[in-house]
Design a protein around this nucleic acid. Structure first.
Lengths: 166, 166
DNA sequence: TAAAACTTTCAGTAATTACTGAAAATAAAA
DNA sequence: TTTTATTTTCAGTAATTACTGAAAGTTTTA
């Protein structure tokens, strides 16, 4: 399998995977392209590779920068902006986790907590508050856990303990 | 806050949260409705509560049953089917995880593995294979590790060790 | 300061996704 | 078996999401 062929397939794969997890397909494709490109790419390079418009390329690149997955760089003697992706996959995972936590989990937790102020006189409230509390606990825990997992995997001692349990 | 008010708000919240994570919004809403209903509900109950069509209710209920999050029950003297949700949130989380793993992670891993057969003569393949391998390792590990850590969180001894790291 | 090079914005529109509603299928009752 | 109750299916369509392309904005060069 030729490199360019494999790269294109990876871009499709990552795009589809991303959209199944609520991440914009094109954004995931731009990310995949940059992840698998040695050199920094310009907006025009990306437009050409993915056959997307200038607007689309620009918006998705800037969004990737908000997520801290892509950086701007400059090439001497060239006026254009060039883009590179963070290549350390652990860092990528951590930053995606961090961003989703900030955008989605925190507001969710806040809303859930508010919903516990339900009128306790209603007999149905008992089950309701239990469900909400359980979800809160679960989400809170999973949140911490993903963090913990990352830290532990990075730590030789705990990493080896975890591996024993698998 | 009245119960019905809180329940409706929860249904909206869960629907939005679901759709941000690639889960059909209506399916998440039906799930939320059943999670917060003491009694089993009929298709008509659900159509009315969520203001959706019979077709939509039916399709989403059956999908929830495929995910193992909802069961059919019967009421004596009633010909209709009634539905209840699994109320143990831990079970809910495990089943969602299991289903997504089966549908998405496994195919992803398979595709990634295939992409490692890239022509090694191309100098760009080196970075490519490393990226693919890193992603494979990360996804595989997160999969196993989240399971392990969730179990450990429930375990007094390891739980306390983990808490030291947070 | 003006022209050129490049980036950003956004109204209009394309693509995707999932719902509606009615007809067909199935199951239960008479 | 026929009638009635209920569930399932799916073509058409609505809703959502995100892209296009051109104009406006910005920065650099001369």
């Amino acid at each position: 399998m030729k490199f360019t062929e494999a790269q294109l397939e990876f871009i499709q794969l990552w795009g589809n995977f991303g959209s199944q997890w609520g991440i914009n397909k094109t954004m995931a494709q731009v990310h995949a392209l940059l992840l698998t490109s040695e050199d920094a790419l310009s907006t025009d390079d990306i437009m050409e590779s993915l056959a997307i418009s200038r607007g689309g390329a620009n918006v998705n690149l800037r969004e990737l920068m908000v997520w801290n997955l892509v950086y701007k760089t400059a090439k001497p003697g060239d006026r254009k902006e060039f883009f590179v992706a963070e290549k350390d996959i652990w860092e990528v995972a951590k930053r995606i986790t961090r961003e989703r936590q900030r955008r989605e989990i925190e507001p969710l937790m806040h809303h859930l907590n508010r919903l516990k102020n339900v009128d306790e006189a209603d007999p149905q409230s008992l089950n309701f508050v239990k469900t909400i509390t359980d979800i809160e606990r679960l989400v809170g825990r999973m949140n911490k856990t993903s963090d913990t997992v990352m830290k532990m995997e990075e730590n030789a001692f705990f990493g080896s303990i975890i591996r024993l349990l698998k």
